[in-house]
Design a protein around this nucleic acid. Structure first.
Lengths: 331, 331
DNA sequence: AATTCTTTCGAAAACCTTTTCGTGAAATCC
DNA sequence: GGATTTCACGAAAAGGTTTTCGAAAGAATT
C-alpha cells in the first residue's frame, strides 16, 4: 500500500506539502498542487483514516444511537426516512455514520471508544441512565424525538398537524371525534393530544375524556386494542384521529372486523404518511411528516454544534394533510 | 484524556505491559494484571481506537453497503430485521457497523478509506460497476440477496417456501393459482417463481403463462398493478401467490377496490411476514423468513471469512408458512 | 555449582498523518 | 538599493497504541 511518503518522494516534495494539497490549504503553488494531484490519481493513493484521525483528533464518524424503545426504531418508516436524509447530508460533508449500541458498556463509553465527532439520538428511552450520561457529556448531540435539556431538537409541528386533522374532520361534519393518543411519555404523544384538544376547542366541541385512549406503543396492535375500547362505548365515535399510521392500520383492522366500513361508517386519520398509507385499502388520510427536511436540518444542526456554532434549540417543521379515502363526509 | 502511558506510569510498568493485559496476553503475571486492571477501571481509561487501528491495521469496523435498488432498502422489514440481527452479533464481538454509500467515489474506495475489516452487501444492483469492483476486491464480503461469484450467500429457502404456499392453496381446493413474481433479475424473484412452478407440477396442475406476471419492484404499487392485470383476465384466478408481503398488500387493495373480498373470493399468500402482515385486514397468510437466524449466520460467516477460514458459499434457511385470514377454502 | 529453561517485563520501532514554525527566495515597497 | 513583506515549502514533533525481541531473574535440571 502506497502512503503519503511515497507520494512525497515521487513528487519530490515533503509529506507536509502533500498533506497540504490533499486538505487543500492555500499555501502551496498551483504547479506543485497539480503535479501532486496527478500522482495521487495515478497511483490511487488513499489516505489512512486511522492515522488521520489520530493526528487530527477527529474520527469523521457520526454515531447513531437508537434502541427499539416503544417499538419504534429503524423499522419505523419515519425514522428510517429521517435517517436516510441525515446520512445523505453528513456523507456529503465527508462523515460516515456508525451505529452505537448501548449494550454492555453504555452509550457514552461506546461513543468515546469510537471517538465519534457527534451523535444523532434517534429514538431512545430518556429514563435510561446510560443515555442521559451521553446527553450530559460534552459530546455533541442532536435528536428528533427526545427533548432533554438544551439538546437541539428538530421535529414536526405536531400541534399544527393535529389541528389540521381535527379541522378536516370537523369540515366533513364530524362531531364525535375520538383520539387514540401515543404514549404520553413521548413528546409526539403529548403534543398531538394537545393539538387535538385545541382543534376541538376551535370548533366549539367539548372535550370528552371517554373519547381519548392512550396507546401503549406506536404500533398496530396498540391501535387495534384502543379502537376495540372505543367501539365498546355506548355511543361510538364517527371519526378517529390516530397518533400514527401504524396504529391507524390496527384501527382500520379493528373497524373492519366489526363489519363497519372505514371511510364510510367511521373516518380515520393517521399521522406520518408512511409509504404504505397510500397503498392499503382504504388509502389512509394522514399528516405527512417532512422526513427529508427534518433529516437534513438535523444534520446541519449537528455539524454546526460540532463546530461550536450556536444553534436553535428547537426547530419545528410543518406537516401536510394528505386526504385519501379513509375519511368522508358524515351522512 | 488519560492514555496508556499514564496508566503505565501509575502502575509502575511499561506501556507494553499495559497493552498486554488490555488485550489479555498470557505473558504477564496475575498480580500486575490485577493491579493494572484496577487502575484502568478507576481512572476510566479508554483506549484510543484510531491509534489502535493504526497499529493493528484493523479498524474493527464492518461496512454495510446498500442502495435503494428495486425499491428495497432499510425501509424494508426484511432487511432491517436481518441487519438488526447481524449488528447484534458483530457488536458482541467488538465490531461496529458503519454505513457505506457509493456516492461520489464508489463503494470500494469508501471501504478502503474507512479501512473496514469486512462488508455486508445488503441489497444492491449487481449491474453496478462500482459494486462489482468491491466484490472483486480482496475485501471480505457477505450478502443475502446478490449472488456473485463465490461471495458467501445466506438467505431463505425460496423454493421450499413457494412450494409450501402452493401446497397450502392446493389443499384449500384452488386450481387457478396465479403468481405475481418479483423482478426476475433478482434471485428471490427467480427462485420463488421456480418454487411456484414446482408446486403446480407437484399438484398436477398445468403451468399457465397468463397467470404469471412480473412485478417491476418489490413494493405495493407493483403488486397493485399486477393484480389489475390478473383481474382483467377472461377467467380470474381464485388465488394469488405474491412474491412479497408489501406487494401482497397492494394486491389486497386492488382486489378490495374491485369489490371482491380477500380471503373469500380470492385468496392471497405473501412472502416475508413483515410485522404488519398480522395487523392488516384481513391478516395476511405468508411465508415467514427467519430474519434473526439469517442475520446471525451472515455475521458469523463474515467473521470467519475475515479470519480466512473457509465457509460455505451458500447457506439456505427454511421458511415457515403462517396461515392467517387471507386464504380460505374455495367454495 | 553450573547450566538450561521459564517467566515476566521493557526499550524501541512501527503504524501514517497533520501541523507548527522556521527558512530562504522572490516580490514589493520607500 | 536596502528594508520589508509575501510566498512556497520542509524538518520535525506529535498523536497513542501494538509488537518484537532481548534481558533479567528466578526455577528447574544436570
Amino acid at each position: 500500500m502506497v502512503d503519503i511518503r511515497d507520494i512525497a518522494k515521487m513528487a519530490g516534495v515533503s509529506t507536509a506539502t502533500v498533506s497540504k494539497v490533499l486538505n487543500n490549504y492555500s499555501e502551496v503553488s498551483e504547479a506543485t498542487k497539480i503535479r501532486i494531484l496527478k500522482i495521487v490519481e495515478e497511483v490511487g493513493y488513499i489516505p489512512n483514516s486511522s492515522a488521520r484521525a489520530l493526528s487530527t483528533k477527529r474520527s469523521w464518524l457520526i454515531g447513531i444511537v437508537y434502541s427499539e424503545h416503544l417499538h419504534i426504531g429503524l423499522e419505523h418508516n419515519y425514522f428510517s426516512g429521517v435517517l436516510e436524509a441525515f446520512k445523505r447530508k453528513v456523507e456529503s460533508l465527508g462523515y460516515d455514520v456508525v451505529f452505537i449500541s448501548g449494550k454492555d458498556i453504555g452509550y457514552l463509553k461506546r461513543c468515546q471508544v469510537r471517538n465519534v465527532d457527534g451523535v444523532f439520538v434517534v429514538t431512545a428511552d430518556i429514563t435510561d441512565e446510560g443515555l442521559r450520561a451521553l446527553l450530559d457529556s460534552d459530546i455533541k448531540c442532536v435528536t428528533t424525538d427526545v427533548p432533554y435539556k438544551s439538546i437541539p431538537l428538530v421535529y414536526s409541528d405536531n400541534r399544527q398537524g393535529s389541528l389540521l386533522a381535527v379541522r378536516h374532520l370537523v369540515e366533513l361534519g364530524h362531531r364525535r371525534i375520538a383520539h387514540i393518543a401515543g404514549p404520553l411519555s413521548s413528546i409526539a404523544g403529548q403534543e398531538r393530544l394537545d393539538g387535538y384538544r385545541q382543534g376541538l376547542a376551535e370548533a366549539g366541541l367539548p372535550y370528552d375524556e371517554s373519547l381519548v385512549v392512550e396507546a401503549g406503543e406506536y404500533d398496530a396492535q396498540s391501535g387495534y386494542d384502543c379502537m376495540n375500547r372505543l367501539l365498546q362505548l355506548p355511543q361510538a365515535p364517527t371519526a378517529v384521529f390516530v397518533v400514527c399510521d401504524l396504529s391507524a392500520l390496527g384501527v382500520v383492522r379493528c373497524i373492519s372486523e366489526h363489519n363497519l366500513v372505514v371511510g364510510k361508517d367511521i373516518s380515520v386519520v393517521g399521522f406520518d404518511d408512511i409509504e404504505l398509507a397510500a397503498h392499503v385499502h382504504p388509502a389512509l388520510t394522514t399528516l405527512r411528516q417532512d422526513r427529508k427536511t427534518i433529516g437534513k436540518i438535523l444534520a446541519e444542526t449537528l455539524i454546526k454544534r460540532m463546530n461550536n456554532e450556536t444553534v436553535e434549540e428547537k426547530i419545528v417543521i410543518p406537516t401536510k394533510l394528505i386526504v385519501r379515502d379513509s375519511t368522508s363526509r358524515i351522512d
